[in-house]
């Protein structure tokens, strides 16, 4: 089973190359001051193109989740948790909740980014804040 990162677009190449180094980036618009996701050439807040990537705190809360029992691809071991996570108290992304019992996941659960190394880089997943593990600044150093 091998999961992989996507072929990035010109908007997301920086996101994925940072993810490979276990850093979670998010588009930030200096014009209107919002963080948003997924990346768009024009900021969804103000319509201007002058955004850049900034470092996320990597912490968030589960907004919605489902336990997937049937995967489309054999690259996914089931069951796994697909979730919408609100990060930095501001922007949301689709992700997986890992390193916990799927039944433990609930709306509002505090989570922290946990990078899953895979073919082509690393996937930003999230794990319950309470679960043992190092914060993203230390996992950022690749062996």
């Amino acid at each position: 089973m091998t999961r992989s990162t996507p072929t990035p677009s010109e908007l997301s190449v920086e996101f994925w190359s940072a993810a490979a180094k276990h850093r979670l980036l998010v588009p930030y618009c200096g014009g209107c001051g919002i963080r948003y996701f997924p990346p768009e050439r024009l900021c969804p807040g103000c319509g201007e193109p002058g955004w850049h990537y900034v470092e996320s705190t990597g912490t968030g809360r589960v907004v919605a989740h489902t336990v997937v029992h049937r995967a489309l691809s054999p690259d996914f071991a089931t069951p796994f948790v697909l979730a919408t996570v609100e990060v930095d108290g501001e922007w949301t992304m689709l992700t997986n909740i890992v390193d916990c019992d799927p039944d433990q996941v609930a709306v509002g659960l505090p989570v922290r980014v946990r990078f899953l190394d895979c073919e082509g880089g690393a996937l930003p997943c999230f794990a319950p804040e309470s679960s043992a593990g190092s914060p993203p600044d230390r996992t950022g150093q690749r062996p």
Partner: peptide
Amino acid sequence: VAVAEVEFVDVWGAYSIPLFALVAQG
């Protein structure tokens, strides 16, 4: 099932049924 050819979807194992499931759960 239909898989949206959209970045930041299938890398998490998402496809039409789990995407609707996220809405249903809420």
